[in-house]
Computed example of a mutant assay.
Amino acid sequence: MEIAKMIDHTMLKADATTETITRYCGEAREHGFASVCVNSCHVPLVSSLLKGSDVKTCCVVGFPLGAMLTTAKAYEAAQSVKAGAHEVDMVINIGAVKDKNWDFVRDDIKAVVEASKPAIVKVIIETCLLTDEEKVKACQLSEEAGAAFVKTSTGFSTGGATLEDIRLMRRTVGDRLQVKASGGIRTPEFAKELVEAGADRIGAGNGIVLL
């Protein structure tokens, strides 16, 4: 198992400096990670630093709450792709899930999927805030909206990835979508367990520790 190629080397802290982002890009190139995942303001820098490598530029939009206007979320995605992002990790509208406003949830995701083309979209469903029934529905709506991945967590809420959630998400999407585990993944052993449970990608704040 080539774990490095499954890791999104992630730096989403509010106080992340240019120096920190530059270091993450260097580490990602050195170890052959899947991507460097950053807040959208850092996309131009990351894209320029990763140019000519196999490491993709990934960013988050609607982060970390997912609770802004759909038009704003889609605009952030479109501008990020224009600036060089290959992958967009968006946060769903969690309140709309709780309201069972399924059309809104689906349309919110679809707007970002359409705005992000040709980049792919990973949908962060924030599992720690959802019931199992809501997790399943969020995964189904992500598939209907054309997303490429479903993802467990922002890492900024009350919990992160669990083996149970990865298994549930994998059962729900089958092999039609990919599954990303993120949040609280700090050991190689846990990363390996998550992959065995069905994760295709691992989002981690220190990918080097997982090697």
Rank of each mutant, 00 (worst) to 15 (best):
M1H: 13
I3K: 13
A4F: 09
K5C: 10
D8L: 05
T10K: 12
M11P: 01
L12Y: 03
K13A: 01
A14N: 08
T18W: 07
T20N: 05
I21R: 01
Y24T: 10
R29Y: 07
G32E: 05
A34L: 15
C37I: 05
N39Q: 14
H42L: 00
P44T: 08
S48W: 09
D54C: 06
K56P: 00
T57R: 02
C59S: 10
C59N: 06
G62C: 06
P64Y: 13
G66R: 06
G66N: 07
T71K: 08
A72P: 04
K73G: 05
S80R: 05
S80Q: 03
A83C: 01
A83Q: 00
A85Q: 03
D89G: 02
M90E: 12
V91H: 04
G95D: 05
G95T: 07
A96M: 02
V112S: 05
K117F: 09
P118I: 13
A119H: 02
I124A: 14
I125S: 04
E126Q: 01
T127A: 13
C128I: 11
K135D: 10
A138Q: 07
C139W: 10
Q140G: 11
Q140A: 13
S142E: 06
E143C: 09
E143N: 10
A145N: 06
A145G: 06
G146I: 01
A147W: 01
A147K: 04
S153G: 12
S157V: 08
G159I: 04
G160L: 00
A161M: 07
T162S: 12
L163G: 08
D165S: 15
D165W: 10
R167Q: 15
T172G: 13
G174R: 06
D175T: 03
R176C: 01
Q178I: 04
G183A: 10
P188S: 10
P188Y: 01
E189M: 09
A191G: 14
A191T: 11
V195W: 02
E196R: 04
A197S: 00
G198R: 08
G198A: 07
D200R: 10
R201F: 07
